[in-house]
């Protein structure tokens, strides 16, 4: 599904290298997790994959189902099935959440040559999904993320994911800011979407999320590289011992 090959990225504006050769492959139907110290480049990786401005790829590349991701506009990547749940969801005053979602759903359908969803069907669809995530009608009417609590913003990201039905979902610290019950809800939301054709890349600092969303593979990212990969037990090891041992073992400067 997602293949990242020796990806090197620096900031466009300054001479700062952030990703220094990321290799990663997420097959269809699997869940991979990325953990790693603050500032190691996890969010940068997710932004570069989704096409945010400000970064320059100096080497390597990334493909989604064999298609060159880095060549596409952000909206084309979305239409191709890529979705990023933001670590910091953006507030958009003046744009209603519902309008936003309907525009997004229909834009993607149009890009894929499908028919737009009728207003009535859309309403039914979003109500059902919102209910599963315990998002009340009021939140749908309000401007996108404006005045939402941290946890509400994260649930809103998952609502968008559920509505857009992407095939490659990247979740950047979706668990941070969630209370215990919300974390369960969000995890159930994610698990409900798991299927053979859909993959997840879950960025997190905490093992707890991975109790709910069981990953197939856990990667450790440090200083712009994947330095270690393993099974779910790797997350436990991080939870118990931190990164020092792993980094020492890999001879990477912490």
């Amino acid at each position: 599904m997602l293949k990242i090959n020796n990806l090197h990225v620096k900031l466009e504006e300054e001479d700062k290298r952030i990703l220094k050769g990321v290799d990663l492959e997420v097959p269809a139907g699997s869940v991979h997790a990325i953990m790693g110290p603050n500032g190691s480049g996890k969010s940068t990786l997710s932004y570069v994959l989704s096409g945010r401005d400000g970064y320059e790829v100096t080497e390597g590349g990334a493909t989604l189902d064999g298609e060159d991701l880095l060549d596409m506009d952000p909206e084309e990547r979305a239409a191709a099935g890529l979705f990023l749940a933001f670590q910091y969801p953006v507030e958009i005053p003046g744009v209603g959440n519902m309008t936003f979602l309907r525009t997004a759903v229909n834009a993607q359908r149009k890009a894929r040559g499908e028919e737009e969803m009728s207003a009535a069907d859309f309403l039914k669809f979003i109500r059902a999904k919102a209910k599963e995530l315990k998002i009340d009608a009021d939140m749908l009417k309000r401007p996108v993320n404006v005045g939402f609590s941290g946890g509400e913003k994260k649930r809103n990201e998952i609502l968008q994911m559920a509505m857009l039905e992407p095939k490659m979902c990247i979740l950047d610290e979706t668990d941070s800011g969630l209370d215990v019950d919300a974390m369960k809800l969000v995890s159930e939301g994610v698990n409900a979407l798991r299927n053979a054709g859909r993959s997840f890349l879950v960025i997190t600092h905490y093992q707890r999320l991975l109790d709910h969303i069981k990953p197939d593979v856990v990667h450790i990212m440090a200083d712009g590289r994947i330095v270690k990969s393993g099974g779910p037990e790797l997350a436990l090891e991080v939870e118990n011992n931190g990164y020092a041992d792993i980094l020492a073992e890999m001879e990477v400067e912490a």
Binding site: D53, D73, P74, R77, V90, I92, F100, Q108, A111
Partner: peptide
Amino acid sequence: ALFYLRSRGVP
């Protein structure tokens, strides 16, 4: 905001 919207597939 523009990037956020585009990342959801809005041209």
